[in-house]
Design a protein around this nucleic acid. Structure first.
Length: 480
DNA sequence: TTTTGAGTTGTTCGA
DNA sequence: GTCGAACAACTCAAA
């Protein structure tokens, strides 16, 4: 029924790379001419269609992948719409014998892919999905009782004991592409902002694409890994790998990262272990999302449904704009808006502030991050917010309420991070940089700061908010 | 089945 | 300045 001249389709999704790409490898192994396609499927994504910053990244990542495919004599076909229609239609039109893809784990994507698989199979076309995004599939790891892990530490121990990844593989050598002409022009998707063009900070900070992902990993191993444990908490320096968006879009795979770290000079160090545990957090988040698909929308602990969210829209807006009057919070929120990314330590601080100082639902923070982060990832974003809010599976204890002043003093001791993103405070001495309202009049005058004019007074009093939060947690303690 | 130890990232208070 | 304890109670995971 099928002959060797029939092409195979390699459907690229969040796996925008050629190396260590199991679906691509399987497609190449079929020895059929390949048709490469990417589908922008906003219809299926519903409320979780890609946000603005992610779209910017996607544009450049697709450009990069398209160039790599072209170098090898092929063309990356771009189509927009429901993949349920597009993929089977392409297969039929081209007489394809098989379609290959790497799995996605967003609930909407799982549901869609299942239907597509049925459609293809029903039409006599082979449909094969494989694991290209995770170290361990969520259904392959469980507690000794056979249940999904809900606590990170035992999950991480289990990975180290029995689920370390295989070595990554390279770009298939026998890639042979078929000639296809159909498809959209990338620029017609209008993924880049124009009026206004807010992407300047993103361009200055990031280079999407497979080659850049490996460049960043190499630089991190060279310069960051040896001191990771302490440096990772300092937002003023490059102490983290910055791989989150590259990993999200699959420009690099977690097992490539794992392998490179392990085989580096400090591969067996504590620092390497704690870095790899961050990779495991990503896995853990996917694990939670797979087993509890409502995780991005609903409190994992239902008692949080009773929490009284009393924050106002004006306060939410002040938070998004970096105008809360707490310098470390404002620096973080401005870094996010300018660069599409925020340092992990600061993400926790701003999240804690939104939830426990402003009493605004974590879902609103999650939505804002979704739109503004280049690394916006359904699993990681939801897990992070639920963790901070305390509503998650493996949540921060109720009393863990970040103090934005002491966090600033501890992790940005010289105030360099604040000075960079809150330039109106740049001339304050370091003893006042994290709490400008405590500075005397002369100090403020010398720094050219008039509070309430150049920079806001704190919109809430932290000590008071903390007490209120503790009382609010007390109130929902016994709720169903 | 029951028991036991533990749970990413913190803060405050009092000695 | 430094240090340890307290801050709910609960659920998870393994023995």
């Amino acid at each position: 029924m099928s002959d060797a001249t029939q092409p195979a389709i390699i459907w690229f999704r969040n796996d925008l790379r050629l190396s260590d790409n199991p679906a691509l490898r399987a497609a190449a192994a079929s020895e059929r001419p390949l048709i490469a396609i990417y589908v922008l499927d906003d219809d299926n994504a519903g409320d979780w269609k890609m946000g603005g910053a992610s779209r910017w990244w996607l544009h450049h990542s697709l450009e990069s992948l398209a160039a790599s495919v072209k170098e090898r004599g092929g063309k990356l076909v771009l189509q927009r719409g429901k993949a349920n229609d597009i993929i089977p239609a392409l297969a039929t039109e081209t007489g394809a014998a098989a379609v290959y893809w790497n799995r996605a784990y967003e609930p909407w994507a799982i549901a869609r892919d299942k239907k597509i698989k049925a459609t293809l199979t029903g039409a006599g076309i082979e449909a094969r999905s494989v694991n290209g995004a995770l170290i361990v599939e969520p259904w392959e790891i469980s507690t000794k009782q056979g249940k999904p892990y809900k606590v990170f530490t035992p999950f991480w121990k289990s990975i180290k004991a029995g689920h370390t990844p295989a070595d990554p593989v390279g770009v298939p050598e026998n890639l042979r592409f078929s000639n296809v002409t159909a498809g959209d022009a990338l620029k017609d998707w209008a993924l880049l902002p124009t009026k206004p063009d807010w992407a300047g900070g993103l361009r200055a900070t990031w280079t999407p694409g497979e080659a850049a992902a490996h460049g960043r990993l190499g630089a991190f191993i060279q310069n960051g890994l040896a001191d990771y444990d302490t440096a990772r908490d300092k937002p003023a320096i490059t102490g983290t790998s910055g791989l989150s968006a590259h990993l999200h879009f699959g420009e690099i795979s977690p097992r490539q990262v794992w392998h490179a770290i392990k085989h580096s000079e400090h591969g067996e160090s504590e620092d390497a272990d704690s870095y790899l545990s961050e990779i495991a957090w990503r896995e853990f988040s996917y694990n939670l999302l797979y087993h509890f698909p409502e995780f991005p929308e609903d409190n994992f602990q239902p008692r949080f449904d009773h929490f009284e969210w009393t924050g106002t829209n004006a306060e939410f807006e002040a938070w998004t704009k970096g105008q809360t009057g707490y310098p470390i919070v404002d620096a973080g929120m401005r870094q996010l808006y300018q660069t599409g990314w925020m340092h992990n330590r600061v993400r926790m601080i701003v999240a804690s502030f939104l939830v426990k100082d402003l009493f605004i639902h974590w879902r609103r923070g999650e939505d804002w991050f979704w739109d503004t982060l280049v690394d916006a990832d359904l699993a990681s974003n939801a897990a992070g917010w639920q963790w901070v809010a305390g509503s998650g599976a493996d949540a921060a204890p109720y009393f863990r309420i970040f103090n934005p002043v002491s966090q600033g003093e501890k992790f940005d001791p010289d105030g360099d991070y604040v000075r960079k993103y809150v330039p109106e405070l740049a001339n304050l001495p370091k003893r006042a940089i994290h709490a400008p309202w405590t500075a005397d009049r002369a100090t403020l005058a010398r720094a050219g700061v008039t509070l309430g004019k150049d920079y806001p007074q704190p919109i809430v009093e932290h000590a008071e908010a903390r007490k209120k939060a503790l009382a609010a947690f007390e109130k929902i303690k016994d709720a169903a």
